[in-house]
Structure formats: structure tokens, C-alpha cells
Design a protein around this nucleic acid. Structure first.
Lengths: 355, 355
DNA sequence: TTGTAGGCGTTATCAA
DNA sequence: TTGATAACGCCTACAA
């Protein structure tokens, strides 16, 4: 008869105590490095713990102490390299601080988002970092009222009184647009994103402002979905126009990729036929032909700062709310071309960062 | 005197029971959708739960039932787009199955890896997906003996009897190398990776085999660190050689990026001066100049399958161990050049995937 | 159909 | 310095 294989039961503090001939209290003290235990006992019990393969049960601990180092992180689009880089930053900071990272992906879907937020609460996380899918205050009020510290990154929910970290979106788009205008482009188009996402709206405002200040230049805005196919379609529309724009600001990284593909497929030359400023620098943007001029966001830093802010908030719940806005950097490469006499106003090439 | 703001206490089943004038058992039954409760009571208690903002405490639940839907995922390099894509696949599958994802990043550091694995165990995860940093069986034996289902992806630990999913690494490198040889290259170099990583070793073997079978062509292998700077340095070494190779197989994506940068900086032309086959297709590889010929791995699928395998294992602990090997695809673009008379043996261009 | 009560693994209080 | 014990929030026999 085959031996029935059962799941191994986990060693508990009780079993360690029995084997050691001490009380569970003592074992607990050893685990928690209490100074009360004699050195001799400590080493003896410690060895036994190692030997038996005892691992503390965090659920029990959590229940008893109501303290736990877990943080929920909820992304809007996990496969977007922008988010990935932020995630890397968050992970690094949380790891250093000894926090466990619970990860979720809302996929830009408010329903899914709520599911994850609830799950995080049930898991008892001591804080949540997330990129909200909508700008609707009421959607987040219930969670907010629970008192678990929240921090939104990249995007802002109007009226939600939580710490936030984001970039200066309107400025970023403003500078990108102005860069093109200074190079002599009068017909600069803009590929924007879903209006319910605050970053999309702000970048659009920056573009509009730049066009207005430059003498009320005619604006052309196409809205995409912030993904690659959206960028492709948007660029398609622009190219098919009777009076194709001479330059385009593309307001997000994936759409930039799609737009590039579209441009290549039409056999258009950058920057001669069409000039481009993209969003979010990526290590490979410098290897594109031509190397891409982009607005670079400090993504990794955004992640580390977000995590540190949240941990700080957990420790000091009553400190005033913080809203951090990081500045972006326009990295000028070769996708906008040059025009004599205007070079003085252009920033210098930034070397590619090795990440 | 300022009112002392205290953290809101969380509503418990007991408080709901009191308010509702029922026992905690009844509330518990309502939460768990027990068919025993009358409809009327169910709706009444249900409404109260909603009203009071009650969230079940999963730690307590876990303690009591010893069941919990948490899975630990440990990556070796979270900022590598290859891993990111796998993560997206895992997340998607876990979300569908109702599992919470605990994420860690070992950063290729065995110490950090162990810390995370231990933390996962303490969190009581019902399974762990990870990319081992080493090929040392003894390193994972303790965790293995605990009985928590393990699954390694991308890499394999010799002798570790757990489910695995990986690609056919030697085949992939073999085909990449053969592709170049068939195009007429006799002097194909190889940029490899750390030997403690199984994928690096296997890809190297594939290269060696191809060179041997092609009439014992002279092999040139440079070992990099699987990161961008490593690829740069390795390519630098190759370029500085008195007899520079005419073609190079680069065994990972980040090193490909670095190698490209090096090639550009030296003003060399691809494929005329040097032909390239890279590893891991990325959406933007098609937009490079010239578009890159690569070995494409089904990364996202690897993630979804890994997650499903692990969940299956959790439910059927005694099923036989599975080792899944996914085939790769050589995507021929323009970084290897063409040679008349040899085109028949080359696969056809694959269209860029929209992810 | 609902209620009572014990216990999951841990820690903290109190007594020894 | 160590031990006994209650309690954290929840679920589930078992009793009613």
C-alpha cells in the first residue's frame, strides 16, 4: 500500500518549547531577541529552532500584535516600462525597510482596482501605494476613511487628502512643445491620452499653453489610449491629414513606440518629414534611429521616494500631507532636427544613463 | 487641548454581531455565504457589514483555517524587461485565480534571495515562483523540505525536484548561431553570461554545438554580466580584437542593448561591419536601425503557465513533477544581412507583435 | 436555523 | 529570569 503523503505540518513555538523543555513564552522571547533570556538558554533554544526548521507564523503574530510590515502596491499597467521602473524603485526601498510588497495590477480598470484595494485592506497592509485609474474622489473615500495610509503616484485624485508624488506634467509637455517651436515648427500636433487620467490632462494643458504663448499657433490634438496601438492609430490619423503636421509631441512612452512604427511603415523620415518628442526616456531610445528626443521622468526615484514617504506616514500618521512634484528633463537627441540660429536655446545632449 | 487622533480600530465580526443582535457565528456564515442562514438575516447582516465598513481579517482567518491564497514571486532582476513581461503574465493568472501576489527581487544576490524565501514562508504562502540565483541544490533544500510547493522559471537548479518552466536555451542559441553561419559568417563570436545561471550555460552550449557542427569553426566567447554595461564591455573587447568577428550572438537582452551602444559609438555599421543576433524580443527592437534579428521568448506565456502550474500543484501535491520547456522563435529582421543563394534557409519575417 | 465555545500560533501581562 | 495564561479575530463542531 502506498504511503499516504501528507502535507508536512509546520513546526510551532509550542513544539520548540516542548523539545527544549521550556515554556512557549521563553521561545517567543528568544525569537524576539528579548534581553531577558540568559545567554545559555538563548543559544540552546536558538539552535533547536534552526534544527527543527521553525519559522514564525506571521498571521498569528499579526493577529496578536496588530503590527505587520506589509505594503500594497497597485499599478495601472504593469507591463508599461514606466511603471516597471517605478516598481523597481519601490521594491528596493521597501526591501531595505523590511516591508513585504503585495502587488496588484488594475489594468486601468476601476473595478479591478477596487478588488485589489479591498484585498490589501483584508491583508492588513499598513499602507498602499497606487496609481488611481480615475479621478473620482467618491471612489476612494471608503478606503480612505478606513485610516490606512494611502499614497498616489503618477496621478492625482482631486480632493483626496493623501500624500502624492508625481511629475510636473504640464511643464514637461510645455517644454517639449516649446522645444519644437523654437526649432521653427509652427504646426506641432499632440497625441494625448484618456482624459480621466490626470497626467494625460495636464500634459495636454502644457501643450496648449505652449502653443498659445507662441502666438496662438493652431492646435491639433489626437487622443490615444496610452498604449502602443493607440499611438499607432493616432499617428496614422495625423499622417493621413491633408496638411500633415511637421512635428508631434507624444504624451506617453507606449504611444511613442506605436507612433514610431507607423512612421516607419509609411517610409517617413525623422526628423525631415516629421519631428518627434516622446515621453519617458528608456535605455534603448538612444539606440533608435535617429536617437529620440524625449521628456525623461525620474521613474526609479519616484518609486524610492514614494515608498519612503509612505513608511514615514505610517510612522507619523498626523504629519501634514505631502505632495511632491518631481521635475522632468528634456533630453535632446536627434529626432527634432536642428535649425541654424536657434541652437542657443537648445539644451545640450545628455549622455545615456546606464541603469 | 488637541484631540488625540488615534488610528481607527477595525470593525470585527463581534461588533457586527452585536449591532445586528445575532451571534458571531451567524455573521461568519453570512460572510462565507453559508446556505444555512435565512435570506432575511443574510441581507440584514450583509447590509450592516457594508454600512459599518467591515473587512474580514485574513490573518485571523488564515490562523484558524490554515488556508490562504498567497503566492510568493521572487525575481532575479526586476528591472529587466524580460522578467517584467513574465511578471505581467504571472500577475494576470494569479489575479484570475484569486491569489495575492507577494513580490520580491533578489537582484541576483543569493543572500537576498534567501531572505525573501524565508519571508514568504513566514507569510504562509501556499506556493513560490522564483528564478534561482544559483545552481546550488543545497541552497534550496531547506525550503524545499518544508513542503511548500516551489516552481522555478527561466532557470533550473540541478537535482531540485520541483516544477520548472523554461525555454529551450541551447536550441535557441544553436539556431541563432546557425542562422549566421548559413548567411556565410565563419567568424561568429558569442557574448555569454554568468556560468552559475543555467540559462547562460545552456545558451553557450548551443552556440558551441552550432560552431562545431559547422565544421569546427573557431569559437570566441566573452562572458558578460547579463546587464547593459556587461554587454558594452564585452562588445568593446570584441571590437578591439585584431581580427574582429564578423558576427556576434548576444545571449541576453540587456547585454544586447549595451553591445548596440558600443557598436554605435564606434561608428560601425550593422550588418555590414558586424552582424548581430540578440536575445528576447522587445516591442522596440523592430524600431531599431536596422531592425534587430532576435531569439524571441514567449515571456508573458511563461508567466501565465508558471502561475497555473503552481496553482495546480497546490491543489494536487502528489502529481508527478512537471518540467515545461517552451520553444523560442528566431525573428529574422535586418541585423544579419543577406547573402544570395542562402535565403531559402532563412525564416520569413515575423510581423511585430502588438502587446 | 441559530448560538455556544474552543482553539489556531503568538505575544504580553502577571505572578513566581 | 522564567512560566502560566489570556487574548487577538475568526471558523466550526456541537448543542439547542
Amino acid at each position: 500500500m502506498p504511503k499516504k503523503i501528507t502535507n508536512k505540518e509546520r513546526i510551532t513555538i509550542k513544539q520548540v518549547a516542548e523539545k527544549a523543555g521550556v515554556s512557549t513564552a521563553t521561545v517567543s522571547r528568544v525569537i524576539n531577541n528579548s534581553p531577558l533570556v540568559t545567554k545559555k538558554l538563548k543559544t540552546r533554544v536558538g539552535r533547536l529552532i534552526e534544527e527543527l526548521g521553525y519559522y514564525p507564523n506571521r498571521s498569528a503574530r499579526h493577529l496578536r500584535t496588530n503590527k505587520i510590515c506589509r505594503i500594497g502596491v497597485l499599478f495601472a499597467d504593469i507591463s508599461n516600462p514606466f511603471f516597471t521602473s517605478v516598481l523597481a524603485g519601490i521594491e528596493s526601498a521597501l526591501q531595505k525597510a523590511g516591508y513585504i510588497l503585495l502587488l496588484g495590477n488594475s489594468n486601468e480598470n476601476p473595478q479591478t482596482e477596487l478588488l485589489h484595494l479591498n484585498a490589501f485592506i483584508e491583508e492588513g497592509v499598513s499602507g498602499i501605494i497606487f496609481a488611481p485609474t480615475t479621478n473620482s474622489l467618491s471612489r476612494y473615500e471608503k478606503i480612505f476613511n478606513l485610516g490606512t495610509p494611502l499614497l498616489t503616484f503618477d496621478r492625482i485624485v482631486d480632493g483626496l487628502k493623501v500624500d502624492t508624488i508625481s511629475i510636473n506634467n504640464s511643464d514637461a509637455a510645455y517644454h517639449a512643445t516649446t522645444h519644437l517651436i523654437k526649432l521653427g515648427h509652427k504646426d506641432v500636433a499632440f497625441i494625448g491620452g484618456p482624459q480621466k487620467i490626470s497626467t494625460a490632462k495636464l500634459r495636454q494643458i502644457g501643450y496648449q499653453q505652449a502653443m498659445q504663448e507662441a502666438g496662438n499657433l493652431p492646435q491639433r490634438i489626437i487622443i490615444g489610449n496610452f498604449r502602443q496601438d493607440g499611438g499607432y492609430e493616432a499617428m496614422q490619423k495625423l499622417i493621413n491629414l491633408p496638411n500633415k503636421p511637421s512635428a508631434v509631441v507624444i504624451s506617453n512612452n507606449l504611444m511613442t513606440l506605436g507612433a514610431l512604427q507607423c512612421i516607419h511603415e509609411h517610409g517617413l523620415l525623422i526628423p525631415n518629414d516629421i519631428a518627434i518628442v516622446g515621453f519617458d526616456d528608456m535605455p534603448w531610445f538612444a539606440s533608435l534611429q535617429p536617437p529620440l528626443t524625449v521628456v525623461a521622468q525620474p521613474t526609479y526615484e519616484m518609486g524610492t521616494i514614494a515608498a519612503r514617504m509612505l513608511i514615514d506616514r505610517i510612522q507619523n500618521p498626523n504629519n501634514p500631507i505631502q505632495r511632491i512634484i518631481l521635475e522632468t528633463q528634456l533630453i535632446v537627441r536627434k529626432s527634432c532636427g536642428y535649425q541654424l540660429g536657434s541652437l542657443d536655446s537648445i539644451e545640450i545632449d545628455t549622455p545615456t544613463r546606464f541603469i
